[in-house]
Design a protein around this nucleic acid. Structure first.
Length: 348
DNA sequence: TCTGGGGTCCTAGGACCC
DNA sequence: TCTGGGGTCCTAGGACCC
């Protein structure tokens, strides 16, 4: 028996959950995002496959989505319902015989299994999840986490796809580096600057050149990514959060100073509520500001001593904001509290 | 097209210490 | 007078993911 990594990813998760409770929506273009009002500043969280046929994608402004698909049904994001569905999915994966489960997000997880036939195991997981939740998922099978993760997209929807060292280069070699999990537009551009455009070119590139361009850590990491190499063992150590933050995009930009300080204080109060629920004090304050039209800045400051006091966090955030010395209208504010690490540090 | 809200991690470089 | 080499801690800033 060999060890395999399965990547389980729910199909159109939020839309699928909504369709479960409103079966009449089945087969229709459904868009879940914001408060469900496509005239507001908000983005698409999930679009059903029918909506995707009109070019609607997650991350897209609702205003754009409604233009592309005026007949779509727009629904508000309903966190508690998705959290409950997610918990059932993860519990189903954990109770499946012989699995080790590493949760990646609401709707996806790595599942480690030791079996002769990983495809059979993948089908078994799909059936178990379907039975428990009436929701469909796709499964990527790999010999590393990266390969399993990338494989899933080739299996969507409702399928299984196997990506291992045997077919990695054949499947991925000619694709652009952005096809890799962890390579976005910026890294792709920087790779392009050193004449690396495909996964194959990245895999065959010189380590020294990548270290020179990306540093001692990221350089080798990228080269390994091109080869499909990464951690191969699923780790079910419970996740310990590093920080908690809250941010808000304002329908009307903020300009008045009292408005801004009230907003910072409200966000700080929310952050402290999260920190208190974990019993871990704030040790660094992060401020994120998006000015109009679209300039984003983040600043961090370490506190003299850890605190649960929202006034201290708000005051620190306002000092960081004052330091930016930018009086453009603010469209988004975020306050994040980085927590004191647990004794012995983080395991993962 | 006009960009949410939740996160994590990395690199460079300055300040400071021995 | 002019300044090595090693280390730690901190902030600025960037990038990625779901």
């Amino acid at each position: 028996m060999a060890r395999w990594v399965l990547h389980v990813d729910m199909d159109q998760f939020l839309a699928a959950v909504e369709i479960l409770r409103r079966p009449e929506l089945a087969g229709l273009p459904v868009v879940v995002g914001g408060r469900g009002d496509p005239t507001e500043r908000a983005v698409v969280s999930t679009a059903s496959y029918e909506a995707r046929e009109f070019g609607v994608r997650s991350g897209m402004p609702l205003k754009t989505a409604v233009r592309r698909c005026p007949d779509a049904v727009f629904l508000p994001v309903d966190f508690p319902v998705y959290e409950a569905a997610s918990a059932t999915v993860m519990e189903t994966l954990r109770t499946y015989p012989g699995t080790v489960v590493e949760v990646l997000g609401w709707d996806e997880a790595f599942v480690g299994v030791a079996v002769d036939d990983p495809v059979e195991a993948a089908h078994g997981l799909q059936a178990a999840v379907l039975e428990a939740t009436r929701l469909h998922c796709s499964v990527g099978v790999g010999d590393t986490l990266v390969r399993a993760k990338i494989a899933t997209d080739f299996g969507k929807p409702r399928g299984v796809y196997v990506l291992t060292k045997d077919n990695w280069m054949e499947v991925m070699g000619d694709r652009p580096t952005t096809a890799l999990w962890g390579v976005g537009k910026r890294i792709a551009q920087r790779l392009d600057d050193v004449d690396i455009r495909t996964v194959r070119e990245l895999a065959h590139s010189s380590e020294e050149a990548l270290i020179a361009a990306f540093g001692p850590n990221t350089g080798p990491y990228l080269r390994n990514l091109g080869r499909g190499l990464s951690r191969a063992t699923v780790d079910d150590t419970p996740w310990v959060a590093r920080a908690h933050g809250h941010e808000t995009t304002y329908q009307q930009n903020l300009t008045a100073t009292d408005e801004i300080s009230a907003a910072v204080r409200a966000l700080s109060d929310q952050v402290v509520a999260d920190l208190r629920s974990e019993g871990r004090a704030c040790m660094r304050v992060h401020l994120k500001v998006r000015f109009a039209p679209f300039f984003t800045f983040t600043r961090v400051r370490k506190l003299a001593e850890p605190t649960f006091d929202p006034a201290v966090i708000a005051q620190t955030a306002l000092e960081l904001l004052a330091k930016l010395d930018d009086d453009r209208p603010i469209r988004l504010l975020g306050v994040r509290g980085e927590m004191v690490p647990p004794e012995g540090g983080y395991e993962r």
